[in-house]
Amino acid sequence: IEKEDISFYREQQKEVQPVLCKCKVRRYRRAKMSGLQKRYYAKLYRIGKLKKKPYSQVWKYKDDIRKMHKLQEEYLFLVNHDIHSAEELVSVISSLTDKRKEVSAEKSRIYKARERSRELFDIADDMKELEPAEKSFLQGDKFFTDEHLQWETLKQKLLSQGYSLEEVEALRKHYKEEYSKACAKERAVFKELNIGKSIWKSLIPDSVSDGKDAQYNKETIRDRKEQPER
């Protein structure tokens, strides 16, 4: 034992080669029904002995699913805005109304700024149409000389206003991204505001839902504030 070492045991080990085991499964094709069998099963369907698979009944729960989604949105609205009373709900609705006005004003500002650069964008569009002809002219094709002159004229118009074609395209992309962000922000605020108004309407009794919501809001808030604390 004293003379044995690890190399001695390694020599005694036999390497086992992995073997792939194959299992052949014979599959049989399903035989088609004969004409007599088809007539037989058709008759069973007609007399009611066999029934086809029933249609989906999901449509029955469409309204319930819609109500569940609405309740989920209202719950998340109350949680996200930390609303615990009607007064806080009215305050949040007022804040969202002001925020919607701000977002709409921002979107209008971006739109007007983009429209002021409409002339630059039109020139850039004309240059884009002439770009293939300009490339051919630069490669030595004199057939597009007129298009090259038009290209140079449009290029000088942009340079006179302090822009190049690349800068105009970057400006167009900037306005597009900013306008998309403003629209997305406006939709989000509008959705939140509608949820808040929906919750408030559900708190108003039917006896006062005749167009006097604003008056009812003020009276309700005043009455609740005047109630003594317990």
Rank of each mutant, 00 (worst) to 15 (best):
Q150K: 12
T145I: 07
E134M: 13
A124V: 14
T145Y: 03
D146N: 09
W151K: 02
Q150V: 03
D122E: 10
H148W: 11
P132D: 13
E131A: 15
W151H: 06
E134P: 01
K135L: 14
D125V: 08
L154V: 05
P132G: 13
Q150E: 07
M127L: 15
E152H: 01
W151P: 04
E134D: 08
E131T: 13
T153Y: 04
E129P: 04
I123G: 13
L138W: 03
S136E: 06
A124I: 10
F137T: 03
K142C: 07
W151E: 01
Q150C: 09
E147I: 05
A124C: 13
K135N: 04
D141E: 05
I123A: 10
D141Q: 01
E131H: 15
F121L: 08
D141M: 05
D126Q: 13
K128S: 14
E147H: 04
D125S: 11
D122Y: 02
D125T: 13
F144W: 11
L149E: 05
E129S: 12
S136R: 12
L154S: 05
I123P: 13
E131D: 15
A133Q: 09
K135M: 11
F143T: 12
T153G: 08
I123F: 07
S136D: 07
F144A: 05
A124P: 08
D122C: 03
D125I: 09
A133I: 06
A124S: 14
M127C: 09
T145S: 09
F137S: 02
E152C: 02
D141F: 00
F121E: 07
A133C: 05
F143Y: 06
D141N: 12
D126I: 10
E134C: 05
F143A: 07
E129M: 14
T145F: 04
H148S: 04
E134Y: 15
K142N: 12
E147Q: 11
K128F: 03
K128P: 00
K142G: 07
D146Y: 05
F121N: 06
D122T: 06
K155M: 03
K128N: 10
K135D: 04
H148C: 04
T145G: 01
K155D: 01
G140C: 05
E129Y: 09
M127A: 10
D122Q: 11
L138K: 15
E152G: 00
D125Y: 02
F121Q: 02
K142F: 11
K142S: 15
E131Q: 15
Q150G: 04
T153P: 00
K155H: 02
K128D: 14
F137M: 06
L138Y: 11
D126T: 13
L154N: 15
F137I: 03
K128E: 14
D126Y: 09
D125G: 06
D141R: 00
L154M: 11
Q150N: 07
Q139I: 00
D122L: 12
L149Q: 13
E152N: 03
A124M: 11
Q139A: 08
Q150H: 06
A133G: 04
D125Q: 10
T153I: 08
D146F: 06
I123N: 09
E152S: 02
I123Q: 11
E152Y: 00
I123H: 13
D122F: 00
L154F: 09
K128T: 10
K142L: 14
